[in-house]
Computed example of a mutant assay.
Amino acid sequence: MKAFLDPRQSAHDPQMFMANGTRLPNPEKPARIGMLRAGAEAAGARFAAPRDFGMGPIAAVHTPEYLTFLQTIHPRWQRIAGAADEVIPNIHPDRRMVNYPKSAVGQAGYHQADTACPIAAGTWEAAYWSAQTALAAAETVTLGARVSYALCRPPGHHAFGDLAGGFCFLNNSAIAAQWLLSRGLRPAILDVDVHHGNGTQGIFYQRGDVLTVSLHADPDRFYPFFWGGAQERGEGAGLGCNLNLPLARGTDDDGYRAALATALTRIRAFGADVIVVALGLDAHEDDPFQGLRVTTDGFTRIANDIASLGRPLVVVQEGGYMQPKLGHNLTAFLRGLA
């Protein structure tokens, strides 16, 4: 199995995030890379560095205004007297069709949905090469590979077209799907992270050319809270091309696979000829976020189910955080695809 990773993805090293009014150590650390790489290699993956596809494929998903913000906000932030090293907003607009401020503080509030996406000196470089990693994996399946794996870090599925959030800055899965679409393919995105892929949904919500499907812990009491309900089906040309399958907290392997069967039926009905799997390993029973209770063996069976689609698979790493079974879970999933 071909796999991709760029060492510059370690440049983003967030120190903290806010949860429940408390400063906590940020779990999206560079050390995740080593655990995930070892897990992929145990499944037979062979890693290479991605080539540079440039800004075009990223700008096909994200606005130039937002991309300018990501590239420039940290040095601008450092010019503020007394500013912390990480860009973390303290104010947000109550609606986004309002003034676009010149202030770095105001723009941070405009472009960062929450306090879980701190921007530091290496954030843009890491996010850029994370996106290039997803593109390299997408290109590989167009050249005949059945499965390719992108070790994307930082992750991406909470990033909207002009909004960071939830550890995410560039939406790697959406960038890969859009690039595949530009090559004449019909992609579906299947998001199996414990959190709803709200950014991915937002990017394609009014479009019918990319199917978006997400299985996740019910957002009524779980991040991202405001998106991910079953009633969210798409709008306009996208009506019926978004499927959310919220699951009760603590759902186990059997419950998860029952919902996955519904997801796979929808993907077949869409006629997708390539699947971007937004792979979150945080649905595991021992993950720090404790949303669902999928076992390590369960990841193998989930992967078996996805492989039954018989379509090329671009596996893009999303969540899954530091715990002893993180690498084993990736090994189980990738072996299940094979």
Rank of each mutant, 00 (worst) to 15 (best):
A116D: 11
A283K: 13
L181V: 11
Q78L: 01
A278F: 14
R183F: 05
D297S: 15
I275A: 07
D13E: 01
N20C: 07
L70I: 08
P75W: 00
P57F: 05
N198H: 11
Y100T: 06
C168L: 08
N20G: 13
Q15V: 03
L185R: 15
I275Y: 03
P324L: 15
C168K: 05
Q9H: 09
F225H: 15
H111V: 04
A3W: 13
S214Q: 11
A272D: 03
W179Y: 10
P155W: 02
E28T: 12
L239S: 15
F169E: 07
F270A: 08
P154V: 05
A272N: 11
A177S: 14
L279S: 03
M55E: 10
Q206F: 04
A136W: 02
N172V: 05
L326K: 04
A11E: 03
A237Q: 10
T296L: 09
V192Y: 08
G208H: 09
T262E: 13
D253G: 06
E28V: 05
A31N: 09
T123Y: 00
G197N: 07
G310I: 09
A136T: 14
G236N: 10
Y149A: 07
A3P: 01
F169L: 09
A150Q: 00
T296Y: 11
L170M: 07
G56T: 00
Q317I: 11
A176P: 12
R311G: 02
P30E: 07
W129P: 04
V194L: 13
F222L: 15
H196K: 02
A272E: 04
D305M: 03
L190V: 02
C152P: 10
N26W: 02
F47E: 02
L67G: 03
P312L: 08
S10G: 01
N26D: 15
W77S: 01
A145M: 05
G34C: 14
P246I: 11
M18W: 14
E232I: 00
R95G: 06
G82H: 01
W129L: 04
I302F: 07
T265G: 07
R221Q: 09
L334K: 15
G336I: 13
R266E: 06
G228C: 05
G236P: 08
Y321S: 10
L190C: 15
Y321V: 12
N242R: 14
R76I: 03
Q231M: 12
A338H: 10
F204W: 14
T22E: 13
M18Y: 10
A126R: 01
P312A: 04
V87M: 01
E41D: 09
E86G: 01
A145S: 09
G240I: 12
I119M: 00
Q231W: 15
F169M: 02
T295N: 09
N26F: 14
L24P: 01
H196T: 07
R46W: 08
A259Y: 13
M35D: 04
D297T: 12
T251Q: 10
G166C: 06
A84K: 13
R37Q: 12
R153E: 07
I33Q: 10
L181R: 11
A42V: 08
D218E: 07
W77A: 00
I88V: 15
L211G: 10
P64A: 09
E139D: 04
F4A: 06
P101N: 00
D114N: 08
L281I: 12
F225N: 12
A136P: 06
A177E: 06
G44T: 01
